[in-house]
Design a protein around this nucleic acid. Structure first.
Length: 331
DNA sequence: AAGCCGGGGAG
DNA sequence: CTCCCAGGCTT
C-alpha cells in the first residue's frame, strides 16, 4: 500500500465518525446508504436511513411495497428518481434471489453509477475499486496540486487513477471511506484544516499554498426567480390537493396544493402565509391564500390529515401548511 | 458535454 | 446571497 493509503487508514481507524451504515456489511444496507448519500449530506440522510430500513429491511420488502409507500418514506430527501430507481433495483435483486456480487453486475442496477458501484463493491464485498465522489475529487486535486477542471471527464478519469494508485487492496472499503471522511471532516471546500490533516506532509497544494484555490470547477449555474400563489381550500378538515401524474415533470407522484392558475373559478379568501423554496436553479416565492370552490374540480381530491400522513406530500405543500400555522399563530 | 433533478447547511 | 453535498440519467 502507498504511504498516503497507510496514513489515511490509520487516521480513519482512530478518528472516523460512528455512522449507522458503517456498522454493517449487508450489501442491501450499504446500497440504501450510498443511494441516499448521492449529492446529499450525511446529516440530511440520518433521519431517513433507519426509518427506511426498518420498513424495507430487505430488497424483497421494498420490491413488494407500493411505489406510493416507497416515495412517502423518501419525501423530503430530494432527488426522487433515486427512490424509483432503488425500488426497481430491489425488484431485480429480489427476482435474482441474491445481491449481485461483482462490480459490473452492481453497476448495472438502476440508479447505480460509477461511484455507487465502487462504494458497494468495496465496502460490502471488499473488491478493489476506488470511489470518486466530490470529496475524493477535492482531496486528489489538493494532494496532487492538480488544477484540472473537475467538471471535465478527462480530469475525473485522471483523478480516479490517482485514487486507485493509493488504494489499500487488503481493505478497499476502509480505504475508500477514509479518503471520503478526510474530505468531509478535514479537507473542507472553503477552509481545509491542514493542521489536523494526516497526509499534509504528502500534499502538494499545501506545499505550494494553493489548497484554497483547489479544486477548480468552471461550470456555473444561475438562478431563475419565480412567484406563485397556492390555495388552501378546506372542507370538513380535508384539503383539496392534486397528484403530479406526469413522469416527465418534477415531483412525479407527489401530492400538491392547488396553484391559483389551476383554479380560476375558485373564490380567493385572505393571505395566510408566505415562504421561499429553491429547487435546483429555480428560486420560488410562494404566497398561500385561503379559498373556496363550489364543487370538486376535475383531477383534485380531498385529503384528510390521516391520508396526508401516508401519501407522499411535496415539501412545497408541507412548507405551505407550516407557513399557514405560523401565520395563524401570530395573528 | 451539458442540463436537469431537492433540499438544506455553511460561510 | 453562493457554493456544495458519499451522483446518475437523459439528451
Amino acid at each position: 500500500m502507498s504511504e498516503i493509503g497507510r496514513d489515511l487508514v490509520a487516521w480513519y481507524r482512530a478518528a472516523h465518525r460512528d455512522l449507522p451504515w458503517r456498522r454493517t456489511r449487508d450489501p442491501w444496507r450499504i446500497l440504501v446508504a450510498e443511494i441516499m448519500l448521492q449529492q446529499t449530506r450525511v446529516q440530511a440522510v440520518l433521519p431517513y436511513y433507519e426509518r427506511f430500513l426498518a420498513r424495507f429491511p430487505t430488497p424483497a420488502a421494498l420490491a413488494e411495497a407500493s411505489p406510493q409507500e416507497a416515495l412517502a418514506h423518501w419525501a423530503g430527501l430530494g432527488y426522487y428518481g433515486r427512490a424509483r430507481h432503488l425500488q426497481k433495483a430491489a425488484r431485480r435483486i429480489s427476482a435474482a434471489g441474491a445481491f449481485p456480487a461483482d462490480f459490473d453486475a452492481i453497476r448495472g442496477l438502476p440508479g447505480v453509477g460509477d461511484y455507487t458501484a465502487a462504494a458497494v463493491a468495496s465496502i460490502a464485498f471488499g473488491l478493489p475499486y476506488p470511489v470518486v465522489d466530490g470529496n475524493v475529487l477535492r482531496v486528489v486535486a489538493r494532494i496532487s496540486n492538480d488544477p484540472g477542471d473537475i467538471a471535465s471527464a478527462s480530469t475525473r478519469k485522471r483523478f480516479a487513477t490517482v485514487a486507485g494508485s493509493w488504494l489499500d487492496v487488503s481493505d478497499p472499503g476502509t480505504f475508500n471511506q477514509a479518503l471520503m471522511e478526510l474530505g468531509a471532516t478535514v479537507c473542507l471546500p472553503r477552509e481545509p484544516n491542514c493542521l489536523l490533516c494526516p497526509v499534509a506532509a504528502h500534499c502538494a497544494a499545501r506545499a505550494a499554498g494553493t489548497q484554497q484555490e483547489l479544486p477548480v470547477k468552471l461550470r456555473r449555474a444561475r438562478a431563475e426567480r419565480l412567484e406563485h400563489t397556492l390555495l388552501r381550500i378546506e372542507r370538513n378538515g380535508a384539503l383539496l390537493m392534486w397528484q403530479q401524474n406526469d413522469p416527465a415533470q418534477r415531483m412525479y407522484g407527489f401530492w400538491e396544493l392547488p396553484y391559483r392558475e389551476q383554479l380560476p373559478a375558485a373564490r380567493p379568501g385572505r393571505l395566510v402565509g408566505e415562504f421561499r423554496h429553491t429547487i435546483t436553479h429555480h428560486h420560488y416565492r410562494f404566497r398561500v391564500m385561503t379559498a373556496t370552490v363550489r364543487e370538486t374540480p376535475e383531477g383534485f381530491r380531498w385529503l384528510t390529515p390521516e391520508e396526508r400522513q401516508i401519501l407522499p406530500v411535496s415539501t412545497i405543500a408541507r412548507k405551505a401548511l407550516g407557513a399557514v400555522r405560523r401565520t395563524a399563530a401570530r395573528s
